[in-house]
C-alpha cells in the first residue's frame, strides 16, 4: 500500500477486545497498539501520538472519561481524536463523552461494518484537519513554519524536554539592516533575501529541528535534544553561510544576520515564553554588539556591557559590517 499506515491506540481493560480489534481492523491499513489500563494508555498515547484512540469507558481504576479528560488537558495529546467504546449506549454517557471531546461512539458488541466505517471516518477527518492546520501554519513566502506553529511547537517541545529531561535549544535570528536593503534594492530583492535565509536555516539544521519565520525579517529555530553549545555552532554556521552568499543580482553585496541562542536551562523559567524571552534578549545583545554575530544567552550580559557605549543601531555605518565573531565563538 502506498499510503503510510495510520496508527491506532486501543485502551481497554479486556485483552479479548484488543485481539478482536486487531483482527477486525487488519484490512484498514492501520497499525494497532493496545493498552489495558487508563494510566498506561495515557502514557502510551504520549509516546506514540497515534492518529486515533479507541477508548473503553468502563474500566476498573481510571475510567474512560477520566482518561479522556487528561488526554484533552495535555497539549501533546489534545488533538488526537478519541472514539469511545461503550457497553451500554445510554445517552447521558454519550453527552458526557462528546462534551469531554470524544469524536464518536461505538457500542459493544461491535457491528463490524459500522466500526470500520467510523474508524475510517475519524481517520479521514483527522487527516484533513492535520492538512488544514499545517497549511495555516506555513509561511507563504519562505515555506518555513510560521509563528503560530513555532509557539505551539515550543510549548510541546518544552513539555517533552522537561518530561524526559533532555536538552532543548532555541535560535532567534534577524536579518541586519533589512529595511535598508528593501529601501535600496527594492522589495523583490528583500523577499529573495528572506527566501535565501530560510534555505540556509533549513540546510544547516537537522530534519528534527523546526525552522520558522517568526515575523518580518525575524526567524527562529527550535532544536530538540541539542545543547546550547551545539546550537551556537549551528547558528554560527548559518551566520557564515549567509555572509558568504553571493547574490546574483548584487554580487558586491554582503547580507548578514544576527543570532541569539539560548536553551531550556538558561531561560529564567522552564517555559516556552521564558525561552523566547531569553533568545530575544541574546539577539538584542547581538544587534547592539555590532550585528552579524552570534550571542549566547548565558553570556549576553557581558557582551552587551562591552558594547553599550557605542550606542543604539541608528547611527551604525552604512557599509555592511566586516565579519565579526561573537564573543563566544572562535574564528
Amino acid at each position: 500500500m502506498a499510503e503510510v499506515a495510520s496508527t491506532i491506540l486501543v485502551i481497554d481493560d479486556s485483552v479479548d477486545i484488543h485481539r478482536l480489534l486487531k483482527i477486525r481492523l487488519r484490512d484498514q491499513n492501520v497499525a494497532i497498539s493496545s493498552s489495558s489500563s487508563g494510566q498506561d494508555g495515557i502514557e502510551r498515547a504520549r509516546e506514540l501520538l497515534p492518529d486515533l484512540i479507541l477508548l473503553d469507558i468502563d474500566m476498573p481504576g481510571m475510567s474512560g472519561f477520566e482518561v479522556l479528560a487528561e488526554l484533552k488537558h495535555d497539549p501533546l495529546t489534545v488533538e488526537i481524536p478519541v472514539i469511545f467504546l461503550s457497553g451500554s449506549g445510554g445517552s447521558t454517557n454519550k453527552v458526557k463523552g462528546f462534551d469531554l471531546g470524544a469524536v464518536d461512539f461505538v457500542t459493544k458488541p461491535f457491528d463490524i461494518a459500522e466500526l470500520r466505517a467510523r474508524v475510517r471516518s475519524a481517520l479521514r477527518t483527522r487527516k484533513l484537519v492535520k492538512m488544514l492546520a499545517q497549511r495555516a501554519q506555513v509561511d507563504g513566502l519562505t515555506g518555513l513554519w510560521n509563528r503560530t506553529h513555532l509557539d505551539e511547537q515550543l510549548v510541546c517541545q518544552v513539555s517533552q524536554a522537561r518530561r524526559h529531561d533532555t536538552p532543548l535549544a532555541l535560535i532567534m535570528s534577524d536579518v541586519d539592516k533589512f529595511k535598508n536593503l528593501n529601501d535600496t534594492h527594492g522589495h523583490p530583492f528583500g523577499d529573495q533575501v528572506l527566501q535565501e535565509v530560510a534555505n540556509i536555516l533549513v540546510e544547516e539544521t537537522r530534519d528534527s529541528d523546526i525552522s520558522c519565520r517568526y515575523g518580518g525579517e525575524e526567524f527562529a529555530v527550535i532544536l530538540p535534544m541539542t545543547s546550547l553549545a551545539d546550537a551556537v555552532t549551528v547558528a554560527e554556521r548559518c551566520r557564515q553561510t549567509l555572509e558568504a552568499y553571493v547574490w546574483a543580482s548584487h554580487d558586491d553585496l554582503c547580507v548578514t544576520a544576527s543570532f541569539g541562542v539560548t536553551d531550556l536551562g538558561t531561560a529564567e523559567e522552564p517555559t516556552a515564553a521564558s525561552v523566547i524571552k531569553s533568545a530575544d534578549a541574546a539577539l538584542y545583545a547581538a544587534k547592539h554588539g555590532g550585528r552579524n554575530r552570534v550571542v549566547r544567552a548565558d553570556e549576553e550580559h557581558s557582551t552587551r556591557g562591552d558594547c553599550s557605549s557605542s550606542g543604539g543601531g541608528g547611527a551604525a555605518s552604512e557599509s555592511p559590517a566586516q565579519p565579526h565573531h561573537g564573543s563566544s565563538s572562535a574564528a
Partner: peptide
C-alpha cells in the same frame, strides 16, 4: 466483578450475545 465485566464485553465481541 472484574471477570464478569470482561466477559460481558468480550462475549459480545466474539459472537456470544447470550453469554454477554
Amino acid at each position: 466483578l472484574r471477570l464478569s465485566h470482561q466477559l460481558k464485553g468480550a462475549c459480545g465481541g466474539y459472537g456470544f450475545p447470550s453469554l454477554s
